[in-house]
Computed example of a mutant assay.
Amino acid sequence: MTERPDAPFVIPAGPLPEPEAAHPSEAPPLDDDMPEGAAMVRATRLAARGSRGWGAWFWTLATSLLTLVISIAAYDYLTALLARFPALGMVALGLTALLGLVVLVQILRELLAFRRLARIDRFRAEAAAAHASADREAALALSEGLARFYGGRGEVAWGAARLAEARAEMLDADAIILATERGLFATLDAEARREIEAASRTVAGATALIPLALADVLAALSMNVRMIRRIADIYGAHSGFFGSWRLLRSVATHLIATGLVSVGDDMIHSVLGGSALARVSRRFGEGVINGALTARVGIAAMEVCRPLPFAALPRPSVSNLIGRSLTGLFGRSDAAGR
């Protein structure tokens, strides 16, 4: 019997090869080398870490002992110099007096800075109490106090004048607080956002270009301290050296407690999006994530230094800040405009 010309051609199959994994769930994971923002994560945890217990006692006693030793050594040096060379001793004594005066002025500035920070905290507590009790008189007192607090600031003069005209006609406590926020903080928020964008741009560029792990952590930490200090100055806190570190520690502790210091998939996709940065260079991707974490620190610093919480005015978003700050640095980010 002859075969039909249109009959199918069949190839006998041999034994099939064994699969590498019995089930898809047992397959080896893919190598996902995504940026993690290691520099900013380490810098934030370093800032939030404080001496507690025996560590605090050790540093306090060590600082006291070092101050005592330096004071005794300086006294012995001055007395010996006065005995041997009276003229040079008088010059050294005058320089020491000037140095002590400078130290005293710096101490007074630090105390004044802590006092202004405490006043910011009182404003925030008064706003919460007025909102909870719906007390119009308390809201009026708060609004007038904030207007006096920012009275010498030219950038808020127009808003303060409009607020003074409209405040007397308002009968609701919440309306007075919202009008105070719009009148006094619209310009200040814009200045704070510009500081955050500049700091995010600098941190992103520094951590992307500096190859040393410790160096990029120090660069990120120093830039965040500077950013927090500038934000405090914008909102009238005028923090000194120790006040800036106190604010940095408060902000870092808040970020760690709320989990915002970690880098999640939502943050990577919202910041990097469809950009090719992470595929072309992981180091540039690290820079972008570090810049985004810096923006998070800046927003937290705004919330800490701002006398009123965000209500009438929108709270800045990380994706918008990082998109505006990194435009033109690594190429236009996909997050820009979101």
Rank of each mutant, 00 (worst) to 15 (best):
L313N: 05
R282L: 15
I268S: 05
L321V: 08
F284S: 15
A292K: 05
G298P: 05
N290S: 13
V261L: 07
I299G: 03
L255W: 02
A300W: 03
P316Y: 08
A312N: 07
V263M: 06
N320I: 02
V251T: 12
T258R: 12
L255V: 07
R283Q: 15
S281H: 12
I268D: 02
S281I: 06
H254R: 11
R324P: 01
N290F: 03
G291V: 08
L272D: 00
M302S: 01
V288D: 08
L308S: 06
G291C: 13
I299C: 07
A312D: 09
A300M: 13
G273V: 09
G264F: 01
D265W: 05
F284A: 15
G323L: 04
G291E: 11
C305K: 10
H269N: 12
V318H: 03
V251F: 03
S270Y: 03
M302Y: 00
L260F: 00
G274W: 13
V271M: 14
L272C: 04
T258S: 14
P314K: 08
V304R: 13
T294P: 02
R296N: 08
S281D: 15
G298R: 12
A312W: 00
S262N: 09
R282Q: 14
G273T: 11
R306M: 13
A295C: 14
L260A: 09
E303M: 11
P314F: 05
A257G: 06
S281Q: 13
M302T: 02
S319P: 00
M302V: 10
N290D: 15
G264T: 07
E286F: 10
V251W: 01
P307Y: 12
A292Q: 07
G287K: 10
R283A: 14
E303V: 03
G298Y: 05
T258E: 15
I289Y: 01
